[in-house]
Amino acid sequence: MALPMIREILAQVFKIPATNPFPARFLPPSVTEFLKKVGAGEATINPPVATPPRFRGKIVYDRDGCIGCNLCIRVCPAHAIEFIPETKRVRIYVTQCIFCSQCNDICPKGVLTMSPEFLLGTEDRFAESQIVE
C-alpha cells in the first residue's frame, strides 16, 4: 500500500500555511466599528493582496472630457451605460458593468478608465457608490 500523501502532510505541518489571512484575525462583533477603528489607527488589519497592473476594477469616468459620441454604449455587452440626453453625457451602473473595459478601448477621448477598486459589494443595486456619472 503506497500512501505518498502521508509523507507530504507530515512535512507540511511544520511549514507556514499558504492561505491569505483574513483582514481581521477573528470576526469582529461589528465590522463597521472595526473598520472605523482601523481608520482611526486603533486596530490593524492584514492588508489585502495587491491587484495586478492590468486589473479592471470599478470604472472611472471623466465627465468633462466626454463628447457624448455614444460609442461606449454601442459596445457595452451588458447595457450598463445609459445616455443622458440633456447634457449629452453617460451614466454607468456599476452593478451591471461586467468589467470588460471595452468602452475604455473604444472611447475616442479616453475619458473612461478602470480603477483598481474592487470592494464593490452592496445590497442596493442603485446606491450612490454604484452609479458613475
Partner: peptide
C-alpha cells in the same frame, strides 16, 4: 486545526 495545517491552511481556532 492540525488537519488544516497538514493541508497548508490556517484552520479554525
Amino acid at each position: 486545526r492540525i488537519s488544516a495545517r497538514m493541508q497548508a491552511r490556517i484552520g479554525p481556532p
